[in-house]
Nucleic acid binder design. Structure first.
Length: 431
RNA sequence: UCCUCGGUAGCUCAAUCGGCAGAGCAAUCGGCUGUUAACCGAUAGGUUGUAGGUUCGAGUCCCACCCGAGGAGCCA
């Protein structure tokens, strides 16, 4: 019995006969030989079949293999300087598991709409493969970071009774005779967790029913949210900075092959090291004004404004202390200047926009009650949350990081839709 | 929700002023002993998003709707 191996492991089998289980990625023919590009999920390798080496039937069959047919190829591993991976397989026999129907995604150009309609097949292409392996590494790095720094994973619920922030649109779900909503953040639950465990994080899907139609938005995305008791805004920024540095450097080390395949500028990522520049909202406004932008204190940053700010630095920039007005009710006002909140955003470089948003939470019961009233929120729905301020309230802080935006930044994507296996967007929920 | 652009063969696109519906790739058949999005020859492939209207004649002009892409606002 010939040993079945993965293509990623091919280098350990030079000169030996092996079997490869996979799918036909592409095929070329030259009369008396066939070049079969076989992929198995770990890589792609060229399998060369000479007419004299196999039966006439097998050679004829190999000439009529549709793209993505499932195959087992048996042959001898041979070093070859012409191969991009250094090896080829000289085919001795071929088993066809299924002759694929005509495959819609050809090795030519396709439009985005067509590819998204065939997302379940698009995942097989080399570029998508590289992106999603980087995503997998990013998620692994995020979890390892928090696990190794004393955090406890505490899963937040997906069904929630009310808005976390009131302003953002939620997806209603029929829940027996009631209506509940798909979560838009696990934060409030993480605050409960921080009071119980000290340091916690959650990682799960998040839903926003905003009718956003931009390269940075999905209606369903994955967010990782740490929350730390006895932590202030500065501690929160320290955590975000250390966390991002770890994730970026780890992906750079372990997924260099994928990043190179995606033609990512590696030195730019290697440069992502602590400390990150930290500027206040007010300083960001001044920076924009100096660049000739007509913007006044109190205004929100638009996408273009964020890009201008982030392109002024060679690494992520932390912007802190935004105006309290228009910010979520749970954000703590700065005791030294109540017009601003102890919150922060981390903007990715190269115009990638907001990667992280977070800050210090309001820990005073009376102030929090007042803010809930001022925001017109149903006090009853937040009574459990207010308990956290009744029973041993302490300063605490946290943040949320959008996984897809991180993936987009690190892989250099133009749109977050490629950063998740099956994107959900306005007007697109299939496949 | 608003603004802009688009919808023609399975895919990517062309079709001049309103005048015969076209090409490349994929498919099918044939050729080639080193191809790298292989190449060469041939065959087949169409309700031009939908429904109205103008016209001798509409892929092309007008109206409505559907779908998609890009951007804005909002956010991670």
């Amino acid at each position: 019995m010939v040993q079945a191996i993965y293509i990623s492991d091919i280098g350990n089998h030079e000169g030996h006969e092996v079997s490869l289980n996979g799918w036909l990625y592409n095929k070329r023919s030259s009369g008396k030989l066939h070049f079969l590009q076989l992929r198995d999920g770990t890589g792609t390798i060229q399998c060369v079949m000479f007419k004299g080496d196999v039966s006439p039937d097998m050679f004829q069959q190999a000439d009529h293999l549709p793209q993505e047919s499932s195959l087992t190829v048996t042959g001898t591993v041979r070093a070859d300087a012409r191969s991009p991976i250094g090896f080829e397989v000289s085919v001795k026999s071929l088993t066809v598991h299924q002759l694929a129907h005509e495959y819609p995604i050809t090795p030519k150009e396709h439009g985005v709409a067509f590819l998204l309609d065939h997302r379940h097949l698009w995942l097989r292409s080399a570029r998508q493969h590289a992106i999603l392996r980087v995503r997998s590494e990013i998620i692994g790095a995020c979890r390892d970071y928090f696990d190794d720094h004393g955090f406890t994973l505490l899963d937040a619920p997906i069904f929630t009774p009310a808005a976390c922030e009131g302003t953002t649109t939620l997806f209603p779900v029929k829940y027996f005779d009631d209506t509940v909503y798909l979560t838009q953040s696990g934060q409030l639950y993480m605050e409960a967790g921080a009071m119980a465990f000290g340091k916690v994080y959650c990682f799960g899907p998040t839903f926003r029913a905003e009718k956003s139609k931009t390269r940075r938005h999905l209606t369903e995305f994955w967010m990782i949210e740490p929350e730390v008791a006895y932590c202030d805004l500065n501690g929160d920024m320290d955590l975000a900075e250390d966390f991002i540095e770890y994730v970026v450097q780890r992906v750079l080390t372990k997924r260099q092959k994928e990043l190179t395949a995606l033609e990512r500028d590696l030195p730019k990522l290697a440069n992502i090291k602590k400390p990150f520049p930290r500027i206040s909202y007010g300083e960001a406004i001044e920076l924009l004004q100096k660049k000739g932008i007509d913007i006044q204190w109190g205004a929100d940053f638009g996408g273009d404004d964020e890009t201008i700010i982030s392109e002024s630095f060679d690494r992520p920039v932390i912007i802190h202390r935004y105006p309290t007005e228009n910010k979520a009710f749970y954000m703590k006002a700065d005791p030294e200047n109540p017009k601003v909140a102890l919150c922060m955003d981390v903007l990715g470089p190269e115009g990638y926009g907001e990667i992280i948003g977070g800050g210090q939470r309001e820990d005073d019961l009376a102030l929090l009650e007042k803010k809930i009233r001022d925001h017109g929120l149903p006090e009853q729905a937040f009574s459990w949350y207010l308990d956290l301020r009744r029973y041993g309230s302490v300063p605490h802080a946290g943040f949320g990081m959008g996984i897809e935006r991180m993936v987009s930044w690190l892989t250099g994507l133009h749109h977050v839709r490629e950063a998740i296996p099956f994107p959900r967007m306005l007007e697109r929920v299939t496949p």
